[in-house]
Design a protein around this nucleic acid. Structure first.
Lengths: 234, 234
DNA sequence: AACTCCCAAATTGTCAACAATTGGATGTAA
DNA sequence: TTACATCCAATTGTTGACAATTTGGGAGTT
């Protein structure tokens, strides 16, 4: 049920794997400030691994888009950018719209039922726990992941869950957009369309929902100071 | 103008970079058969580099989706799969549809003009050169790349040009779908919509075009033997 | 004070040897 | 013959040392 359990399930069999998962978690949970340079000797010593293994882990972080790297200069955590966040919303609109369409076509009856129960649970649960910033429970992400997985398109699932959603979480932690009642209603409408197997409508509604989320985020961003956004140099 | 020149332009400043580009090219041009296992010692010796640099290059290939890797077992070139190809078409439909919409909104007048000239050139050029299997000139890819770039969404451009289109080329080499007159007409309609700055229509037409391409590919696939598809074991 | 040049320290890229794991070959027993 | 256990060669993962590059600061000149 937890987001991580399906998208990132494999046990770390390799040192580089473990380092990758640890660092990824640390970045997504805010343990490493955005924009900070990564010192290979320092990090390797801190975790007690060799620089080689660490470098392989950094390579994987680069492919998750959590780190940028320049030859002979080094790697640094990505930094917060409103423009990038808006770009990500546009991409999500297209890809998750398609995912919703496919989910309406391809979900099993069991999966539809699970989705309905998920949404019902979220409706009756406590509306706001502002400081719930661990990776495990985010109602909005759980819903989106459930729909994406329902598309049955393996590559679409990987592109969204493994690559793009790491960025979504990165921004979400630093934005903390909560989970508005409006979003809950939009979710319910999407689930209704999927239940009716109306792929066309599911896509339209999902795209509308993500556009609306983007607008909500933009509104919120305009009222925040750079410090609140966690913009650091160095 | 060439596809590569913009999407993969940076000079290889590092040995691992050079290896990555060489291997990528080799896979995309068919120099390495699909599904083949990669032997690290063998390849490293063949190119005269250390295994460490090679491994870093393989890591990058993995992120381009050209290679799959399992811990303690090794890496192998991806293999041909009709299901995967269909998945890719679905993703392209969503993402390039959005790209066309954004291109209609955001392209500069100069970019629109370039696009019009590109399509005019292709219209009057020789219709078919069946064995033109180098990476540089593929009229269909040139067109799609031009539209994608016009979206001005940097991440969308990267996701499509760097990651997904490597797969498109991988399959295209082994499928050689040519460039039908129908596709040319579809391209022209899309350019018309972009010229009118009609994003909605550009998206609809692009999605239709990619769906039609998918159907054409599927039709062709049903008439091919496994050997023609380059399906190897080993 | 500002600018250039140069050097040293720190950081990243590369390599070759070592450790751990896998897959198959061999041999044995039911 | 089949099934299973054991061993060995080959492959992959890991490490520490070495080479190449960048960066920051200081001496010297204008």
């Amino acid at each position: 049920m937890a987001f991580r359990s399906v998208c990132q399930s494999q046990e770390p069999v390799t040192i580089a794997d473990r380092m990758f998962q640890d660092l990824r978690r640390s970045i997504l949970e805010g343990g490493m400030p955005a924009g900070k340079k990564i010192s290979e000797p320092e990090l390797a010593a801190a975790y007690g691994v060799s620089r080689g293994s660490l470098r392989e882990a950094i390579g994987k972080l680069e492919n998750c888009n959590l780190v940028t790297r320049r030859p002979n200069i080094g790697a640094r955590i990505i930094s917060f950018s409103i423009d990038q966040l808006m770009e990500i919303y546009q991409i999500r609109e297209a890809m998750e719209g398609m995912a919703a369409r496919l989910a309406a076509q391809n979900m099993t009856e069991q999966e539809v039922q699970n989705l309905q129960e998920l949404i019902k649970r979220q409706k009756s649960s406590t509306p706001e726990q502002p400081e719930n910033n661990n990776l495990k429970h985010d109602p909005d992400l759980d819903f989106h992941f459930c729909v994406i997985k329902g598309s049955q398109n393996e590559r679409l699932i990987r592109m969204l869950c493994q690559d793009l959603y790491d960025l979504v979480r990165f921004y979400r932690l630093r934005l903390n957009p909560g989970f508005t009642p409006k979003a809950q209603i939009e979710h319910e409408l999407i689930v209704d369309a999927i239940t009716r197997r109306d792929g066309e409508m599911a896509e339209v509604l999902m795209r509308h929902h993500i556009r609306a989320s983007r607008d909500r985020a933009k509104l919120q961003l305009e009222n925040m100071t750079p410090e609140e956004l966690g913009v650091h140099e160095k």
